Amino acid sequence: MKMNELSLVLVGAGKMGGAMLTGWLDMDLEAKNVTVIDPGQPEDMKALADKCGFSLVSSPEAVTQPDILVIAVKPQMMAKVLPGLTGLVGPKTVVVSVAAGTPIATFQSYFGADTGVARVMPNTPAQVGRGMFAAFASEGVSAEMCEAIAELLSSTGEFTWVGEEALIDAVTAVSGSGPAYVFYMVEALAKAGEALGLAPDAANLMARQTIVGAGELLHQSPLSASTLRENVTSPGGTTAAALAVLMAEEGGLGELLAKATVAARDRSIELSK
């Protein structure tokens, strides 16, 4: 299906919904074929609708059944929101959810067991076009529609499919929650700099820019992360001394991240029950 022929309804125009919408409008997706449903009617979204030409409504009444229904509301709002969306799901409508912890079975319990559903885990860097999206699609989603979904979600970052729904919990642990790990690394590195005698402002600037710069280098370089690490590390030098601590088999960063991602995955599983 061509992007300019695709009809799409987005439910929820918060940070993630708004980020995805911005990416879609920069594609070949026709703004006139897009409807955004948001009871809050935020002023910035009103201004964007006036500028770009998509429809912004406060409720699903009178909205026609789209090819794709994207649900971008918080998981705790699902029980309140989903009953009002049943009229938007037709025989050919595919439901795309970017809400953490809500399984495909929940959507099919409202919209019908044969409804095609793609469960997506995004992350917050999508707000600056550097997002990571991973998804699993139920049997009711055609290959053509999978291609369309992948193209839509790639508009604000990178995209990949996973082979089973249970792996969405692993995706949550790695990329969904992952930005928080990086932000905490900035905090920890800045505090370590202060402990070495640097002024707080200088330590924070150094830590923040080091992570930002390393991330951009990783983004632009064709080299692997391990090769980039090795390129920074001189044998017997200062970086090697630090990495000996970070890469220790016991108590090192690798072990901590393994424990952290298991904890995040297990909590994701708990929240989906």
Rank of each mutant, 00 (worst) to 15 (best):
G129D: 08
Y110W: 07
V186E: 11
M145G: 01
L196R: 08
P91I: 04
T102H: 06
V120G: 00
G176W: 06
V94F: 00
Y181P: 07
A134P: 00
G87C: 03
A72I: 08
A99V: 12
P122F: 02
P75N: 08
S138F: 07
V96N: 00
T156F: 12
F136P: 02
R119H: 10
G163C: 04
G157Y: 12
Y181V: 02
G193F: 10
G116C: 00
A188V: 13
G101L: 09
M121N: 09
A166Q: 08
S109Q: 14
P179Y: 09
F111A: 08
F136N: 04
L85Q: 03
V95I: 08
V95Y: 12
Q76T: 13
L153I: 05
T86A: 10
V98W: 01
K74W: 02
S138T: 05
M145R: 12
L69R: 05
V120Q: 04
V94P: 06
C146L: 15
T160H: 02
Q76L: 05
C146R: 15
A148V: 15
A148H: 09
L167Q: 12
G90D: 05
A188T: 14
G87P: 03
I104M: 15
G90T: 15
V98E: 00
A126M: 08
G157K: 11
V95D: 08
W161D: 05
G129M: 14
T102Q: 04
A100P: 12
S97M: 01
T172I: 04
M121S: 05
A195D: 15
D114I: 01
E147H: 01
I168E: 11
A72C: 12
Q76N: 14
G116L: 01
E144V: 09
A173S: 05
L82M: 14
Q127S: 15
S138E: 01
G84V: 04
S175G: 07
W161E: 00
L69F: 07
G193K: 07
